[in-house]
Amino acid sequence: MKPFAYRRATDARSAVATVAADPDAAFLAGGTNLVDHLKLGVACPSLLVDVSDLAADLVEHLPDGGLRIGAGTRNSDLAAHPVVRAHYPLLSEALLSGASGQLRNAATTAGNLLQRTRCGYFRDATAPCNKREPGSGCPAVAGHNRHHAILGASPDCVATHPSDLAAAMVALDATAVVLGPDGERRVPIGGLYRLPGDDPTRDTVLAHGELITAVELPAPFGGRARYRKVRDRASFAFALVSVAAAVRMHDGVVEDLRLVFGGLAHRPWRAAHAEDALRGSAPTEVALRAAADAELLDARTLSGNGFKVPLARNTLVSVLRELTDGAAEPEDDA
């Protein structure tokens, strides 16, 4: 671990100015991801600007019926918030499926969204990794890739984004409020994340020094929602596949829906093809399978993650079957 300087920010503007001015500076919030990376030698900032004291842990109603969540709101607090539980249960469910109680107590909303993509080779400072050391190669392509991407990957990087919260936020059409040196801008969470392409070093579209100060949710989508996470153990594991889904039914037909996969790509994967296939249709078993297959048509598997294709399909179908409330009968495969 490299020695670093530490500064406690007292206001967002000066924190942004400080970090923006120093290419080796980084924001520190809950520290559940960055501190790991410091210890592993994966991140070596010379200055940490601690933003966890900024009064950014408020959850407030917005005039349009939406909700504004302060960036510093801890995962545990957000998951337990009565308004979130009542009107955005998808969010609570996603948060509570992530990490452990101890980590959720420390982790913040923005910090969760901005955790780095997850890959064992990225975390191993002795291994090549294009994300950590551009041009050094990607050992995951031919190596241990059980957890890696089947959608939107590139030859340079096959890592997946691990945030459950992010997948739910995309499904909820949330927007990040971002403060930069030149002022504030709004970035839909659906557009926050990048695919790796030929520059996997950046996970998001944020510029160095930009700080998420809040996340805004539109008025509730209505209907029924579910966050279903499938992983290698019952808790405290990253998703192999997750599905954030919200469905509004009308007269036995899918009126509108939002479907997002986690665990399949470098970013939360909005399943737009599947949504289009089902919007306005009766959710029969055949239709659900066809929608899932449409989304996974472009899946490209690696040596160890081929199972993610049937797993993603089955999980999506399973969740949609549940949300459409028996409108489609499960096949009896006895």
Partner: peptide
Amino acid sequence: LGHTANPDLGEYHIAANA
């Protein structure tokens, strides 16, 4: 690389409480 690719308790799973 010739070594364990998952050498920490985040990647090498042991049974969790759940």
